[in-house]
């Protein structure tokens, strides 16, 4: 019973992650501004990827060190990359 529950929750996490991926990546093709796309993209890539990795963690707990490292790397690097891209892409007014 518990195994079935864990299976359902892990597949649920993976599907939620894929939906986040699609939701966040879709506006990339549209004509919106860089910052708008960056927002949806960072939500999709960070949260979606974290949901997928948590789904994997529930499915195969034997690889937990690797997946925890991936979660930490994801949370740190994606956030900082989003900040750096936002900072670099906005034109600063000349004083």
């Amino acid at each position: 019973m518990i195994d079935q529950l864990i299976n359902i929750v892990s597949y649920g996490c993976i599907v939620v992650g894929l939906v986040f991926w699609l939701w966040g990546t879709w506006p990339l093709v549209g004509p919106r501004s860089v910052l708008y796309k960056l927002h949806t993209l960072s939500v999709a890539d960070t949260l979606g990827s974290v949901a997928i990795v948590v789904g994997l963690l529930l499915k195969i707990p034997s690889e937990w060190p690797l997946l925890i490292m991936a979660l930490i790397a994801l949370a740190i690097w994606n956030t900082i990359l989003g900040y750096v891209l936002a900072y670099c892409s906005t034109e600063e007014p000349n004083d």
Binding site: L28, L41, D45, S49, V53, K59, S62, L66, A70, L81
Partner: peptide, 29 residues
């Protein structure tokens, strides 16, 4: 160029997650 940078950042994150999924499927650290 900044739209291209966004696209490349997204490709890099997604491919690394796919590599992780494949590594878990093959049970290869």
């Amino acid at each position: 160029i900044w739209q291209k940078m966004l696209a490349f950042a997204s490709v890099s994150t997604k491919t690394s997650i796919m590599i992780l999924v494949i590594s878990v499927l093959r049970d290869d650290w």
